[in-house]
Amino acid sequence: MSAAQSCSAQILPVDPTDRRALLAWNAVLGEGFNAGREAAWWASEETILARFGDPRPERLSVLLVAHLDGEMVGAAGADVDPGDPAEIEISVLPAHRRRGIGTALAAALRETLAGQAEVVQAETYSEAGVAFALAQGMRVGNQEHRLLLDLPVDRPLDLEALRAEARPTPGIEVRTWRGACPEDLVEDWARLTTQMEADVPMGDLTRPASRAEVSEIRRNEQRMDAQGWTLVRGLAHADGTAVGYTEIFLNRHDPQILTQDDTLVERAHRGRGIGRALKLANLENLAGVPEAGSARWIQTYTALDNAPMLALNRALGFREADVLSILEGPLHAG
């Protein structure tokens, strides 16, 4: 790949089968992306090696690095599933910003992705990142609060106190487990996660194609386990019908930051305290995971205008840490 025209950095591809090059790429990408952020998770070496050691056959992944005077100063990556927007990341180490390196990486990504995608999406937590993406012809499509729940290792979360504040939920049963979804629940899980993909607030972003079939769920569970993830999950039933779910991700290689991922309650059953009951039951479920004892934070994401979920998360003790901006634009900006 030719050297960038807008700066003196050299942009080169990374071979994901080259262990040393792959880990160096991941380290620089994470260092630049998370600079200045509090309690910011990034994929561990074990996780990234497992991910690229068993790539999705239908997915195109692009890995690039920027070298300046023999030093790696930036990195970029892109993942594209057929028919979906390309998910891109561009990262420049703080000491080397405003020198055209990010622009050179962006141009190289566009060149490599030509014919593979028409739309690109990118995430950033900084105003500078938003400004850079806007200059590249993208627009803000959605924004979410990233919230943190502090978990000092010497003070466990007071679930009893939180449960005492919960609204009664007559007729609601919550079942929790860890790892792969039980066979007798997987059809309900597939249905609800498909609904989540349709219901989750995405602002003006292009929605990816739904992939919540049972076979895809099982394959994803296998991949996540291989990458070091423990899935901590709960499903709520109302009068025998599955009406909501929640899940937490814990990475066994780096358990300090846990992620409270999706929580869904079907519209017809909202306002009954099911979301709170799910989250509390799953936090209790989490307490049974040995690695969770090392956790310092749980992070979760909530759309800026999702007032009910923001109120629930704040009631559980979450605080706002920063704002995730997701931007979208054409691969080749006019």
Rank of each mutant, 00 (worst) to 15 (best):
A3K: 13
A3M: 13
S6H: 08
L12K: 14
L12I: 12
P13K: 11
V14W: 08
V14D: 13
P16Q: 05
P16S: 08
A24F: 03
W25Y: 06
F33I: 00
F33W: 10
N34I: 02
A35G: 01
R37L: 15
R37H: 12
R37N: 03
R37C: 02
A43H: 10
A43N: 10
S44M: 04
E46C: 00
L49S: 05
P55C: 04
V62P: 00
L63A: 04
L63T: 00
L64F: 02
L64C: 04
V65Q: 13
D69I: 02
V73A: 01
A76T: 11
G83D: 05
A86Q: 05
I90A: 04
L93Y: 10
A95Y: 06
R97H: 07
G100V: 06
I101A: 02
A106D: 15
L109P: 10
R110G: 08
L113S: 03
A117C: 13
T124L: 09
E127V: 07
L134G: 04
M138P: 06
R139D: 10
V140W: 04
N142V: 14
H145P: 04
D158H: 08
L159T: 09
R167V: 11
T169P: 00
P170V: 12
G171L: 05
T176C: 15
R178K: 07
R178M: 05
E183Y: 02
L185I: 05
D188N: 08
W189C: 03
R191P: 01
E197A: 14
P208G: 06
P208S: 07
A212Q: 14
A212D: 11
E216I: 04
R218F: 09
R219A: 15
N220I: 07
M224A: 13
A226C: 09
W229G: 03
G234E: 06
G240I: 14
T241Q: 15
A242Q: 07
Y245D: 08
I248Q: 09
Q256Y: 09
R267E: 15
A268Y: 08
R270P: 13
R272F: 09
R276Y: 06
L280F: 10
A281I: 09
L286G: 02
A287G: 06
G288D: 02
G288N: 01
P290Q: 01
G293L: 01
W297I: 02
I298S: 01
I298A: 00
Q299T: 11
L304D: 00
N306K: 01
A307D: 05
A307W: 02
A315V: 06
F318T: 07
R319Y: 00
I326E: 09
L331R: 10
